[in-house]
Lab assay of single mutants.
Amino acid sequence: YKELDVHLRRMESGFGFRILGGDEPGQPILIGAVIAMGSADRDGRLHPGDELVYVDGIPVAGKTHRYVIDLMHHAARNGQVNLTVRRK
């Protein structure tokens, strides 16, 4: 696995990616679609299928989808987010 730290600034449309997973206990949280011309797309480092490991330094492995969405909403209010993702 390769770990990447990604800092994104929120645009009008948000951070520019969707979150998948976390529906079953222990299921990984994954990056879903990366939205064209969004913040994540312009940054270029997030890829669909990347596993989300940390959101603003908070571990999200094994957490629920709702928990991660709530963290992302909090980050959106701050206008930026630091993510750590893991890729095979």
Score class of each variant (00 low, 15 high):
residue 21 G to Q: 09
residue 41 D to Y: 09
residue 43 D to S: 08
residue 23 D to W: 11
residue 77 R to F: 11
residue 32 G to D: 14
residue 56 D to S: 03
residue 14 G to L: 01
residue 49 G to Q: 06
residue 13 S to M: 07
residue 63 K to Q: 11
residue 39 S to N: 05
residue 13 S to R: 10
residue 36 A to D: 10
residue 71 L to I: 10
residue 72 M to V: 10
residue 26 G to W: 06
residue 57 G to L: 02
residue 72 M to R: 00
residue 33 A to K: 15
residue 83 L to C: 04
residue 15 F to Y: 05
residue 38 G to H: 04
residue 39 S to D: 05
residue 4 L to T: 05
residue 23 D to N: 13
residue 79 G to E: 08
residue 58 I to F: 11
residue 79 G to P: 02
residue 58 I to W: 10
residue 37 M to E: 15
residue 3 E to Q: 08
residue 18 R to E: 15
residue 14 G to N: 05
residue 69 I to C: 13
residue 57 G to M: 05
residue 35 I to R: 13
residue 83 L to M: 09
residue 36 A to K: 15
residue 83 L to K: 02
residue 14 G to Q: 03
residue 73 H to W: 07
residue 67 Y to H: 11
residue 13 S to E: 14
residue 67 Y to R: 09
residue 48 P to W: 05
residue 13 S to F: 05
residue 34 V to M: 09
residue 88 K to N: 11
residue 29 I to Y: 12
residue 29 I to N: 06
residue 54 Y to V: 14
residue 82 N to V: 09
residue 71 L to E: 03
residue 78 N to M: 11
residue 32 G to K: 09
residue 77 R to W: 08
residue 68 V to Q: 01
residue 28 P to L: 04
residue 81 V to F: 02
residue 33 A to F: 04
residue 34 V to W: 01
residue 15 F to N: 00
residue 66 R to P: 12
residue 20 L to E: 15
residue 77 R to S: 12
residue 41 D to L: 03
residue 38 G to Y: 00
residue 22 G to I: 05
residue 19 I to V: 09
residue 59 P to S: 14
residue 78 N to V: 13
residue 20 L to T: 15
residue 62 G to S: 06
residue 18 R to G: 09
residue 75 A to K: 06
residue 74 H to D: 13
residue 84 T to E: 04
residue 2 K to H: 06
residue 30 L to E: 10
residue 5 D to L: 08
residue 14 G to H: 03
residue 3 E to V: 13
residue 4 L to R: 02
residue 84 T to C: 08
residue 38 G to V: 00
residue 25 P to T: 09
residue 4 L to P: 00
residue 50 D to E: 02
residue 5 D to A: 10
residue 24 E to G: 09
residue 36 A to S: 13
residue 23 D to C: 11
residue 10 R to G: 10
residue 76 A to M: 12
residue 79 G to W: 07
residue 69 I to N: 15
residue 38 G to A: 04
residue 49 G to I: 01
residue 33 A to N: 14
residue 55 V to G: 01
residue 48 P to F: 06
residue 41 D to N: 06
residue 23 D to Y: 10
residue 70 D to V: 06
residue 37 M to D: 15
residue 1 Y to C: 06
residue 80 Q to I: 09
residue 22 G to D: 07
residue 28 P to E: 06
residue 18 R to W: 04
residue 24 E to P: 11
residue 79 G to A: 07
residue 67 Y to G: 09
residue 8 L to T: 02
residue 56 D to T: 01
residue 45 R to D: 06
residue 32 G to P: 03
residue 57 G to E: 08
residue 7 H to L: 09
residue 59 P to K: 15
residue 9 R to H: 13
residue 35 I to Q: 14
residue 1 Y to A: 05
residue 45 R to P: 04
residue 60 V to H: 01
residue 37 M to Y: 11
residue 12 E to C: 08
residue 8 L to I: 07
residue 20 L to V: 15
residue 70 D to G: 12
residue 74 H to F: 11
residue 16 G to H: 01
residue 9 R to S: 12
residue 8 L to N: 02
residue 16 G to M: 00
residue 46 L to R: 00
residue 12 E to L: 04
residue 35 I to T: 15
residue 6 V to R: 00
residue 68 V to W: 03
residue 12 E to F: 06
residue 67 Y to N: 11
residue 80 Q to M: 13
residue 29 I to E: 03
residue 78 N to K: 12
residue 55 V to P: 00
residue 7 H to N: 12
residue 34 V to K: 05
residue 70 D to F: 08
residue 26 G to T: 06
residue 45 R to S: 09
residue 41 D to E: 12
residue 19 I to N: 01
residue 79 G to D: 09
residue 56 D to C: 03
residue 42 R to Y: 07
residue 16 G to T: 00
residue 77 R to C: 12
residue 9 R to C: 09
residue 5 D to T: 14
residue 17 F to V: 12
residue 8 L to G: 01
residue 42 R to T: 08
residue 43 D to L: 03
residue 13 S to P: 05
residue 77 R to D: 14
residue 53 V to H: 08
residue 4 L to G: 00
residue 18 R to F: 05
residue 48 P to I: 12
residue 72 M to T: 03
residue 40 A to S: 05
residue 36 A to Y: 07
residue 47 H to T: 13
residue 14 G to R: 01
residue 19 I to S: 01
residue 30 L to F: 14
residue 52 L to W: 03
residue 20 L to H: 14
residue 81 V to T: 05
residue 43 D to I: 04
residue 14 G to A: 02
residue 46 L to K: 03
residue 80 Q to F: 14
residue 74 H to Y: 10
residue 65 H to P: 06
residue 77 R to A: 13
residue 29 I to P: 07
residue 49 G to D: 06
residue 33 A to G: 11
residue 68 V to I: 10
residue 53 V to S: 07
residue 88 K to E: 07
residue 25 P to H: 07
residue 31 I to H: 01
residue 18 R to K: 14
residue 36 A to G: 08
residue 12 E to G: 15
residue 58 I to A: 10
residue 49 G to E: 06
residue 29 I to C: 09
residue 27 Q to H: 11
residue 78 N to C: 11
residue 64 T to W: 03
residue 78 N to W: 06
residue 33 A to W: 04
residue 26 G to E: 08
residue 80 Q to G: 09
residue 13 S to G: 15
residue 9 R to A: 10
residue 6 V to F: 05
residue 27 Q to K: 11
residue 70 D to K: 13
residue 66 R to Q: 13
residue 45 R to T: 10
residue 73 H to L: 07
residue 62 G to H: 07
residue 62 G to N: 10
residue 75 A to G: 05
residue 24 E to L: 09
residue 63 K to N: 08
residue 26 G to H: 08
residue 17 F to E: 01
residue 25 P to C: 07
residue 39 S to R: 03
residue 80 Q to E: 15
residue 47 H to R: 14
residue 37 M to W: 08
residue 78 N to F: 08
residue 23 D to S: 10
residue 53 V to A: 08
residue 47 H to E: 11
residue 85 V to E: 02
residue 47 H to F: 11
residue 17 F to W: 02
residue 39 S to E: 06
residue 60 V to C: 11
residue 24 E to D: 09
residue 38 G to F: 02
residue 43 D to N: 07
residue 56 D to K: 01
residue 63 K to Y: 07
residue 69 I to W: 09
residue 19 I to L: 11
residue 21 G to F: 10
residue 5 D to G: 08
residue 75 A to L: 03
residue 34 V to F: 05
residue 53 V to Y: 07
residue 28 P to D: 04
residue 69 I to Q: 14
residue 10 R to H: 15
residue 10 R to S: 15
residue 63 K to S: 09
residue 68 V to S: 01
residue 65 H to M: 10
residue 64 T to S: 12
residue 12 E to A: 12
residue 55 V to N: 02
residue 6 V to L: 07
residue 76 A to T: 12
residue 68 V to H: 01
residue 17 F to Y: 01
residue 16 G to L: 01
residue 4 L to S: 04
residue 53 V to I: 14
residue 12 E to V: 07
residue 34 V to D: 06
residue 32 G to H: 09
residue 40 A to P: 04
residue 29 I to S: 03
residue 65 H to E: 08
residue 4 L to K: 04
residue 64 T to D: 10
residue 4 L to H: 07
residue 45 R to H: 08
residue 82 N to P: 00
residue 72 M to P: 00
residue 43 D to F: 03
residue 64 T to M: 10
residue 17 F to I: 15
residue 59 P to G: 11
residue 45 R to G: 08
residue 42 R to M: 12
residue 59 P to F: 12
residue 31 I to L: 03
residue 27 Q to T: 12
residue 87 R to P: 03
residue 34 V to H: 04
residue 17 F to A: 00
residue 66 R to Y: 08
residue 8 L to H: 03
residue 10 R to E: 10
residue 56 D to V: 00
residue 44 G to C: 04
residue 72 M to K: 02
residue 29 I to M: 09
residue 27 Q to D: 15
residue 73 H to P: 00
residue 12 E to D: 14
residue 57 G to I: 00
residue 55 V to C: 06
residue 31 I to T: 00
residue 17 F to L: 14
residue 21 G to K: 08
residue 83 L to N: 02
residue 82 N to M: 11
residue 33 A to S: 15
residue 54 Y to K: 15
residue 6 V to M: 03
residue 77 R to N: 11
residue 88 K to V: 15
residue 44 G to F: 04
residue 64 T to P: 10
residue 45 R to V: 07
residue 7 H to T: 14
residue 61 A to Y: 11
residue 87 R to T: 05
residue 53 V to Q: 09
residue 35 I to D: 15
residue 25 P to V: 10
residue 31 I to E: 03
residue 25 P to A: 10
residue 82 N to Q: 12
residue 65 H to R: 15
residue 73 H to T: 11
residue 53 V to R: 14
residue 10 R to N: 10
